[in-house]
Simulated scan of single mutants.
Amino acid sequence: MTVTLSGPLADRSSWSTAQCSIGKAMEAVGSRTAMILLREAFYGTTRFDDFAARTGVTDAVAAARLKQLVEVGVFDKRPYREPGQRTRHEYVLTRMGRDLFPVVFALMQWGNAHLQDAGGPLALVDRATGEPVTVAARTASGEEIAVDDIAVHVNLEWLAQSRDNAGPGAEGAHPR
């Protein structure tokens, strides 16, 4: 089961993965701690102490990773102050962060299927109907599609923009 690389991508030896979106995404959010922090944010956690307690990492690790996730744009850091207390910050998912929902729960779905007995401890369900919810590859029109039916093409809009941004005479903008 594989996707089909087409056009100039078919010859895998002729291109590099230097601009790979998967690689860039992993640099931004690819650690275990980042995924667990995201899980907690999707469960409603916003305050630092709760993140640290619920993830089981040290305060230093939680602080460092939350800082990185704020810098990359996954979380916004917002001040709040309870009466009689100093100002503190909460961490709220941005649109970029909310867009990671299918990624985080695809990992949960995979873990439930392959690493847990009896389907795992938690299941996603539709709040109104109780029907199970799954993460799957879909076309833009919403039709579920098998991996074998997916082709990977060069994004010509990205290619043109990256060449424009590279300046006159720049080479190597091709995703090779």
Rank of each mutant, 00 (worst) to 15 (best):
A62K: 02
L124T: 12
P8R: 10
S16I: 03
R39N: 10
P175I: 07
G120Y: 01
D59C: 04
A173S: 12
G30L: 04
E27T: 14
A113N: 06
I150H: 10
R78Y: 06
R86C: 01
V57W: 07
A128K: 14
R65M: 08
E157I: 00
H174Q: 01
N155A: 05
Q116D: 14
A64K: 15
P175Y: 06
T55K: 04
D149L: 06
G97H: 04
A137G: 06
R98H: 10
Q109G: 04
L156G: 14
A170C: 01
T87G: 00
H153Q: 14
G167M: 03
Y80F: 09
G7L: 09
V103G: 03
L38T: 08
A151S: 12
S13A: 07
E157L: 07
R95M: 06
Q161P: 00
E144T: 15
I36Y: 14
L38V: 08
P132S: 08
L5V: 00
R65Y: 07
D117E: 14
G84I: 06
H114Q: 09
F105M: 01
V154N: 05
K24T: 10
A160S: 10
V154H: 07
E131V: 12
P102Y: 10
V70T: 14
Y91D: 03
G172Q: 01
T87H: 00
E27M: 13
G142F: 10
E27Q: 15
A18W: 06
R47I: 05
A25F: 12
V74R: 03
K77I: 00
R81T: 02
P121G: 12
M1E: 13
P79K: 13
A34P: 08
S16R: 12
C20A: 11
T94Q: 01
L122N: 10
R86H: 02
I150R: 09
S21R: 15
G119D: 05
T4F: 01
V147M: 13
G7I: 14
V92G: 01
V72T: 08
D148R: 07
P83L: 00
V3P: 00
D50S: 05
D164L: 06
E90D: 09
P8I: 10
R163T: 05
E144S: 11
I150P: 08
S31Q: 02
P83V: 00
R88Y: 00
A34D: 10
L38A: 06
R86A: 02
P79N: 08
T134Y: 11
R65Q: 08
G167L: 08
A63N: 11
G142H: 11
L38N: 05
G111L: 13
M108E: 15
D149A: 07
H174P: 03
L122C: 14
H89Y: 13
F75W: 04
A52K: 15
Q161F: 07
E40D: 09
R12P: 15
A113G: 10
V92Y: 04
T87A: 01
T129G: 11
T33V: 08
F51C: 02
Q19N: 06
T94F: 03
D99H: 05
F48Y: 03
L37R: 09
